[in-house]
Computed example of a mutant assay.
Amino acid sequence: MARNSYQTLLNELEEDVLYLSELVAERVRYALDALEDKDERKAEEVIEGDHEINRIYLDLEQDCIDLLALQQPVASDLRFITASFKIITDLERIGDLATNLAQYAIDAENDVYTEVDIRRIGDAALDMVDQAMDAYESEDTELCHSVAERDDNIDTMCNQASQTIVRDLMTGSDFEGDGELDPEEFLIDVRRLLLTVRDLERIGDHAVNVAARTLYMIDNDDSLLF
């Protein structure tokens, strides 16, 4: 295959990876909106859209395999293809987490622990994903390190939220809800909230993975991979 045609395939792969990231980010935003507004329509849209994300992921996975199998990529191209292969896996998993969040929005019966700012945590995690993809597109090593450094902030926010919930349960503090809640229903909602916090933290972790793979792609630097 002519070199210019091969380069076109590499450029198309990058564009498609970036498109997948935009789609996934949109799904996460919709899921956060659904959680905040108790909007079942948006939540269902996120859940139904997961099929599209999976289809694009599988297509891109095959594209990466074809480039590796049918071409003889030089070292820099090989790193780009393998990094892209790993990054789309993280993006697909973020899409799965968006689906989880949407399902929580549908299942939640009551407002519990409204002092836990889920939207703030979600926006921070999503901003890390956007920054990691900016690093991928622009091949910016400083952005890669910045994403990794921001992960501590997400971890702290999630830990504080979880501790608030568990502390109030342990001490029997009052909670806010709509009327009289059955204790079992309340505990189910609390568990769902803890799972929400956990999934937001995982989105941040996947953003770090994207940054780590991008740094390796750019500079053959594996310092963020371990």
Rank of each mutant, 00 (worst) to 15 (best):
A31M: 05
P183I: 12
R27G: 01
D16K: 08
M157T: 08
M217D: 12
L23I: 07
V208A: 05
K42A: 01
A34V: 08
S146N: 04
I203W: 06
R93C: 04
H51E: 13
A31W: 04
S138C: 05
D152F: 09
N159Y: 15
S173F: 03
I165H: 08
A98F: 05
R192G: 13
M170H: 07
L187M: 07
L10D: 09
E14S: 11
D221Y: 03
V24P: 00
Q163K: 15
L20E: 04
I121A: 09
G179N: 11
D77V: 03
A105M: 06
D182L: 09
D168R: 14
G177L: 02
F226R: 14
Q163T: 15
M1A: 15
S173H: 10
V28F: 04
D127Q: 10
R120M: 12
L143I: 07
H51N: 12
E48A: 14
I56L: 04
E184F: 14
L68N: 02
L18I: 01
V112R: 02
P73Y: 10
F175K: 03
I53Q: 04
A212E: 14
R55N: 03
Q72D: 08
D134N: 06
Y216M: 14
Q163M: 15
L23Y: 06
T141M: 11
A132L: 13
E26C: 01
L32F: 11
D151P: 10
V210K: 01
F85T: 01
E137P: 00
L181C: 04
L181M: 12
E14D: 13
G179S: 10
G204K: 00
Q71V: 09
L60H: 01
D178L: 02
D33F: 08
Q160A: 11
T82D: 15
A75K: 07
M133F: 00
V24G: 00
D221M: 06
E92V: 02
A124V: 00
L68F: 03
D39S: 02
V147M: 08
D37M: 03
G95Q: 06
A212V: 10
I53R: 04
E61D: 12
N54S: 02
R79K: 09
L58A: 15
D168K: 15
E44K: 09
T8I: 09
A161D: 14
T196V: 13
V190N: 06
A83K: 12
Y216Q: 13
I56D: 00
V112F: 07
C158P: 12
E36D: 11
R55I: 01
D59V: 03
D63V: 03
A75Y: 12
A34H: 08
A124H: 03
A34D: 06
R192E: 11
N220A: 14
N153H: 06
L9H: 13
A161F: 13
S173R: 11
D33P: 02
Q72N: 12
D16A: 08
V197W: 07
E45G: 05
G177W: 00
D117S: 06
I165F: 10
A135W: 03
A148K: 05
E22I: 01
N4Q: 13
I203K: 04
I188L: 07
